[in-house]
Design a protein around this nucleic acid. Structure first.
Lengths: 236, 236
DNA sequence: TCAGTTCTAGTCACTTTGACTTTAACTGGA
DNA sequence: TCCAGTTAAAGTCAAAGTGACTAGAACTGA
């Protein structure tokens, strides 16, 4: 298309090209502490510009897929997984994001559940990184990851997003671990529990999680709806 | 371009085109009650599709302007004003938003201050409408306006957005009127005042607003920074 | 001068929150 | 088998915040 050989006047005439990228988050036990921490997959660029650097998964928007479909495809192609949560993050359209052409990137962010299969899906050109140890990325992708983290933490504080890191049934302590991993703080177990118990979307099941070392905790279920952005709004 | 004559295979090959639109909000005294209410300007479409219908101001993205610059230009061209607040709303990219071609619209929302000049800037093809009485619009613009309203109300509840409807100096009652207009509720003056007084970004000036019918209220000033999205983040 | 209105400060009951204590339930090792 | 250690779960208490309300201060216009 418009490679490094395109001169200035050619670039000025070319329509800004449109790409979709996705910031994918998952929880994974830390090697050191064993407690859950936040990870995200990156792909290595195999072409100029920024050849060899890590970057967010993404690509051009095809003409027959919607924006969230394109983001889901990114996710499927890099992790082999379906998103348990997907939300539009932002449209980045600065003039000099790419040195070779004007690119407008519509970025989504997603949560996936930490199945072992997911994390096994690594290769030479796909690798998971700790969210607090992301290397220097191609383009403006470091700023994008930072903003995605900001939004994730924000959504967590209000919203109903934590449960999408977990399976259908979970203990209240697991929810607390999600908060502690994402917000990077320790929370008082008793007070946190009281807050969750007062939200009506979290309902007790009769079940208990067996096999732990100590008193078996009760299992809960989340019954709320996820989103309030236009992509998710109408889904009943 | 790709008009109604383009056949299916031509459309499938064409890159999705990229447009910028802007939802512009301003407060204006209601004709009936005289209290401030929320208004927005729309432009009449002079071409197919949806010729004759009202639509959001917007147009294609030119190659030399950033996304917020394009939104500001929309605003300038329709209202003659500069935005006192501008934030990206959402990128709408559904497959069938326009009957003639695939269009991805990056939509901004803006607040402007209710100068008389602004509202005088009407014409045959530009008219202001009450936000709760928007007619049937072209494309998916009704849904976009609805979502912009949702975001405005949301931002108001947390954020620091109300002051951008007002001038540099304002009374606490004026801030309350902004909240009452946007949220469409009545708020207790004493309690609302107590909350505002406890936020450190709102500082007293020595001045009082003279010329009113009753006890002259103290004037305040807002010293906070507006935004937390990538466009506004870095501005110090 | 006073009736009417808004501005401003304050009271009181109720709810929420953070720090902390206590009891229940389970495992693994002595 | 019993007990130390750990987590689950419930409860206590003071501080802070919120909604409903009262009351005085300050101004205008009749």
């Amino acid at each position: 298309m418009y490679g490094t050989s395109a001169n200035v006047s050619e670039r000025a005439k070319a329509a800004p090209s449109l790409a979709i990228s996705t910031v994918i988050f998952a929880l994974r036990p830390s090697e050191s502490s064993g407690r859950p921490t936040l990870w995200l997959p990156l792909v290595r660029r195999i072409r100029e510009p920024y050849k060899g650097l890590w970057a967010l998964p993404g690509g051009p928007l095809t003409h027959t897929e919607s924006l969230p479909d394109a983001a889901s495809r990114n996710l499927q192609e890099t992790t082999g997984l379906a998103p348990s949560y997907l939300e539009q993050l932002y449209a980045f359209g600065g003039l000099h994001r790419s040195p070779t052409q004007r690119v407008v990137s519509i970025v989504y962010w997603a949560l996936v559940q930490p199945t072992e299969a997911a994390l096994a899906d690594e290769s030479e050109n796909v690798r998971w990184f700790r969210a607090d140890k992301v290397p220097d990325l191609a383009f403006d992708h470091n700023a994008i990851v930072e903003y995605a983290l900001f939004r994730l933490r924000n959504k967590l504080a209000y919203g109903s997003v934590a449960y999408h890191f977990l399976g259908e049934y979970f203990t209240l302590a697991q929810v607390r671990e999600v908060y502690e991993a994402v917000l990077d703080t320790r929370l008082d177990p008793a007070n946190f529990r009281r807050q969750l118990k007062s939200t009506p979307e979290i309902v007790e099941t009769g079940e208990y999680l067996q096999g732990g070392k100590h008193r078996p905790p009760r299992l809960y279920r989340f019954t709320g709806r996820p989103g309030l952005d236009p992509d998710n709004r109408s889904t009943p």
